[in-house]
Nucleic acid binder design. Structure first.
Length: 380
RNA sequence: GGGCGUGUGGCUGAGCAGCAAAGGCAACAGACUGUAAAUCUGUCGGGGUUUCCCCUUCGUAGGUGCAAGUCCUACCGCGCCCA
């Protein structure tokens, strides 16, 4: 992989770049749609291309469980397996340390903690999640499929990711929960850092390997992590974990980290990408970012449009024989109306979810494209 | 004509003396940021000074009870069976 910075903004940390991989080039800043199980749910790979998606991210943990990396490898690795010939990333399974651990225990998301979610709950220094065990060497999960115990540490994660064969792979980290206290995060950081070095040593392939910065909302820990991870010989950097109680804070926290990372290497913000977040994080110096929102929300009936967020399951849309988004030229907007899509969603027809998934991805990708254009013009 | 059964909130469907009445669906509102989840939460007869109070409801009309959706009588509707 090769990363070229074409332009740096004079007004912010934003930059325009090219991420070159053996499967093609990614223009950055760029959204990375999430294909956890080697698929953008409801779409096939050709359709995903038509949404202007440039690169996807799949998941090590889930593909290890189903169908198993050996199957994928035998099929000619992920690109051939899923017939996606463009760039690919795989997440390391570090997020599942959170989502299947404290995330499940507390019913939380990982990024921004709302005040009312705190309710005096915290995760103290030596706490363990109920369903998984995190120790010095890695994490013992329980398979969500059959309950089997399964261990993933840095070595295992890299081994799996090499077999999966994405262009960019991530170091195995612990994504800490937003409720984690300082002492917990500090200890967790030691693990994430130790594992980062092991990942570098284990990687034998020519895949690009990104290290992941953690440290939650604590400035000194974020800086420490960014310095440590940034000082290792990674090809790029992920920024993970929690980002405080509100979006402005999130931007600041990303900047703390970005300022400590090597300038010439790409930065990927893990798991952030509401429309309203994009300009903020790009201005904070992020090159790529993945987010489940466009695809996940689509399956819940939510369309993102120039009029805002629309819940197409609402009955009122059955009476609207008009384009989903009058300013959008995606296949869905050119060919289908709100009333029909609403009907499909209300009738539980999978095509409704498919149409919204297509549109949302196209809309999100166009949105980022516009930001790239504005950086080009010097507006951002 | 006779016998048996049944009638509950927008629908469905529990309840068979102390209920504004379980559950489901629909409806309405909200949540979701490195995707165990096409999911979760709240409201859902009307009104109010809304952690409580008032009013009106369980086919219709009467009756027995302190108290009736729940028991009795008649009628009406629906279903099945026998003539």
């Amino acid at each position: 992989m090769n990363f070229k910075i074409l332009k740096k903004s004079k007004n912010s940390r934003a930059r325009l770049g090219f991420l070159e991989t053996s499967h093609g080039v990614v223009e950055t800043p760029c959204l990375v749609p999430v294909a956890t199980q080697a698929v953008i749910k409801t779409l096939d790979s050709k359709e995903v291309e038509e949404t202007k998606s440039q690169i996807l991210i799949s998941n090590t943990f889930h593909l290890h469980l189903k169908p198993g990396e050996k199957i994928v490898e035998r099929a000619g690795q992920l690109h051939n397996f899923m017939n996606w010939k463009r760039p690919l990333m795989t997440d390391s399974g570090g997020y599942q340390v959170f989502s299947l651990g404290f995330g499940t225990d507390f019913g939380l998301g990982s990024k921004i903690l709302k005040k009312e979610q705190e309710e005096g709950r915290t995760i103290r220094e030596n706490a363990q999640p109920q369903k998984i065990k995190i120790n010095h060497d890695g994490v013992t999960f329980r398979s969500p499929i059959n309950g089997d115990e399964l261990f993933i540490g840095p070595k295992e994660s890299i081994g799996i990711q090499e077999k999966l064969g994405a262009d960019i792979i991530f170091a195995f980290d612990e994504c800490t929960a937003p409720l984690a206290e300082y002492d917990y995060v500090k200890k967790s950081l030691e693990k994430t850092h130790r594992w980062a070095k092991i990942c570098l040593k284990e990687r034998k392939s020519d895949q690009a390997l990104y290290g992941i910065v953690q440290g939650s909302k604590f400035k000194d820990l974020r800086l420490e992590s960014a310095k440590f991870i940034g000082g290792l010989d990674f090809d790029g950097f992920g920024i993970g974990g929690e980002f405080g109680n509100d979006k402005k804070t999130m931007g600041k926290m990303v900047e703390w980290v970005v300022d400590e990372l090597p300038e010439k290497k790409p930065r990927h913000l893990l798991g952030v990408g509401y429309l309203e977040d994009m300009e903020l994080i790009i201005k904070s110096g992020v090159d790529t970012f993945d987010c489940t929102v466009p695809t996940h929300y689509a399956r819940r009936g939510i369309a993102f449009t120039s009029e805002g967020k629309l819940d197409l399951k609402q009955t009122k849309y059955l009476k609207k024989n008009e384009k989903l988004d009058k300013n959008c030229i995606c296949n869905v907007c050119l060919n289908y109306k709100k009333d029909y899509i609403s009907h499909l969603l209300k009738a539980g027809e999978i095509t409704g979810m498919k149409l919204l998934t297509f549109h949302n991805l196209y809309y999100f990708n166009s949105f980022v494209e516009e930001i790239r254009n504005r950086i080009k013009k010097g507006e951002i």
